[in-house]
Every structure is written in structure tokens, then in C-alpha cells.
Design a binder for these strands. Sequence first.
DNA 1: GCCAACGTTGGC
DNA 2: GCCAACGTTGGC
Length: 156
Amino acid sequence: MNYWLMKTEPTCFSIDDLKQKKVAPWDGVRNYQARNFMQSMEKGDLVFIYHSNADTIGIAGIAKVAREAYPDHTSWDPKSEHPDPKSTPDNPRWFMVDVRFVKKFKHIIPLSELKNHKALANMKILQKGSRLSVTPVTSKEYSYIEKLANKNSTRN
DNA sequence: GCCAACGTTGGC
DNA sequence: GCCAACGTTGGC
């Protein structure tokens, strides 16, 4: 079992969209490192959903891998958001996974709070200039963040 | 809107 | 294979 974090712009696709759809393909990734991480995902892996470029930036909830990597067919669809003429059905360059909604946090854990925790200091998402949209998370980081989320949900 | 950081492209 | 130019990301 591995743990991951995937970024999304909520105006494009949010945790609420995932909640409504239950299962969704994580398409449109056009970065080799991110693609490679998706290809090493296994069914059942847990994934933090992170909202970037949003009113409240931070971790919004949890999903899990419902289907392991398969070719991202939007890459050879010229009408898609991110077409790539070098990707074809015979020789796909880009891949995606399906993710299933697990939970939405009562409150998004803001980036500003994540930065306050020494235990999370090594997370890719907290490194200056980090733009990678799919990153691995350690099991320690995962459980630490889960606890943060629970703590946030019980106060009010 | 700004801009630093990053990845990709393409000329050489 | 180098590297400048360019486009994009994403926090602020």
C-alpha cells in the first residue's frame, strides 16, 4: 500500500466533483514524473486530494486508486484540454488512473497549516517551487495528516 | 496581477 | 548535448 498526493484546481475539478461522481479518471496529466508516479500506483492506494489556485489552498480530502494506470485517451483527442499529437492509441505517451471518492475533510487543511508541522517538512508539496502534480507521501506523513484532519473536524 | 521556479522546446 | 527562450504553475 502506497500513499500519494494529487493536485487539482477546484474550479476545474474539486473534491465535491469527485464526491458526486464517486469514481473519476485522473486525466490530463502531461508531465513525465507525474505520469511515472501514476504508473507505479496500485489499486487501493490512498490519495490526498489537494486544491491549488483556490480560495482555500490545501488538502481537501481522500480518494483511493480504483483502476491502475491505463492510456489517457484524451491525449490523442484534438478537442481535449491537453492534446498531444505525439501520443497515439498505438503508442500512448500519457497515462491516467481512476480514483474513487473516500472522504471530504470537514475543513480543508490549509497549506499555511501544513507548513507549521515539522513532521511534514519534507513533503514535496511544501518545497519551494514544487510544481509536480502527483507526488508520493510517506505512511508517516499520511497518518499525521489524517490526525490533523480529525482534530480539525472535532473543534468548532 | 505579479513573479519565482520549473519543464519543455528548438536552434546550434 | 548545451542552453536561451518560452510557456506554465501556483502561491501570494
